[in-house]
């Protein structure tokens, strides 16, 4: 895999953190914050851990703090994959 897409992110979100009752992951959720979507800090840590394992990249602690939305996570991962 050379790029990481929002759909990849959706799969990780639903797979490891569940889906909030009020959210449809197929909606346009890229720029909606994880907090608004109903994902707490633990959920974001879990997603980051799964991304690290699936893509073999390392995500430092402060980078996790900056992943505020699905799109922000996708952008960060793609920067790391390109580096």
């Amino acid at each position: 895999m050379t790029t990481f897409t929002l759909d990849d992110m959706r799969r990780i979100m639903g797979g490891c953190a569940g889906v909030p009752e009020t959210v449809d992951l197929t909606d346009d959720i890229g720029e909606v914050s994880f907090v608004e979507l109903g994902y707490d800090s633990l959920a974001v840590l879990e997603m980051a851990a799964r991304i690290q394992q699936q893509l073999g990249i390392r995500i430092p602690d402060d980078a996790v703090d900056e992943m505020k939305s699905p799109q922000a996570a996708v952008d960060y991962v793609n920067r790391r994959l390109a580096a």
């Binding site: 490891c16 953190a17 569940g18 889906v19 909030p20 009752e21 109903g38 633990l42 959920a43």
Partner: peptide
Amino acid sequence: VPSRLAVQ
């Protein structure tokens, strides 16, 4: 159990 709760 709701999905977000079930995973944890």
